[in-house]
Amino acid sequence: MISLWRDMNRRGQVVLVVAVLAMLLAPVVATRYLLSVLTLILYFVYVGQAWNLMMGYAGQLSLGHALYVGLGGYVAAGLWVHFGIGPWLGVIPAVAIAAAFGAFIGWLAFRFGIEGVYFSLLTIAFAEFTRIGFDHIGPLGGAGGLFIPYQESRLGEWWNLRGGQLFFYYLAFVLAGAAVLLTAWLARSRLGHQWMAIREDETAARALGIDVFRAKMKAVLISSAMTAVGGVFYAFYYNNLFPAQVFEMSRSIELILGPIVGGLGTVFGPVIGAFVLTPLGELLIAVTDKAGLNAPGAKAIFFGLVLMIIIYLVPGGVWPWLSRRLGLVRRRS
């Protein structure tokens, strides 16, 4: 973490401090709507970072991360709705179950040598399989969805994640901040270097004594556990879960766009990506509404075009390009 700071030059440090302060003070001036957008951005920073660890650093392209969001959310919400177990406690089984799924998928893939596109399809298959399964789990609402009831009396119970917009904003801020710090630390750790070696060349990594299977398992475990925490947040923030919405492949895609657009395998890429994409989406909704184009498709089309343009022009992501342009990173000598 200290080295993260040391790697930035004076200008980068100033920008970082100003940005963090601005985020902390935002609720003073922000409207409720703006705060909800910022919360969404921070949520995507968090889950994007979790995925970035696995893909950006360890090079394993999971296209089914919605699975872990959904599992985390459903487990915690189910425990709360049925047994009154609060999310601070419920997050533990939520994480454990999601990580167990992650471990199983990882074990299958890495033991049996399922790589590249095949690995991606395996992750999709598991997410879709689970989605259809959840459509048929009665106690969790099935296809009709699971709802966390709104109770006036519990509104201030922040320890049960029952709070208002302001509470969730700061919670998201803490989660996102922690994810960034964790990534920065991992990126410079021994494990992080093993991941990068595997990402770059698995055979060469093995020849340098790296236990590839173990390192990959750690990646999938950490990533799925982290993502599940995001799922708990999601469930208690929105108070409803539908299999068709949380496990959908489009959810997995939504979650990975930020890191890809921002810059894979970088600490700040997922942050920049979320801050670019989410407001862009909101802006598009506003503009199309104003223009009387009341079609939800118009926004998405523009989104699709932006994606194509970004991946065509800056395939490495916006952050590496931006930080070079603005001179935010120290040139190591």
């Binding site: 070696a197 060349d201 060469a204 093995r206 020849a207 340098l208």
Partner: peptide, 30 residues
């Protein structure tokens, strides 16, 4: 191969395989 390396036998490849996107130093750090 990794177990062999951990016992103290390191190898090079005939067609070199550096980690392309990493710096020279990070390659060696690994």
């Amino acid at each position: 191969p990794d177990a062999v390396c951990r016992r103290g036998v390191a190898r090079t490849f005939q067609i070199v395989r550096p980690f392309p996107a990493l710096t020279v130093e990070d390659n060696v750090v690994i």
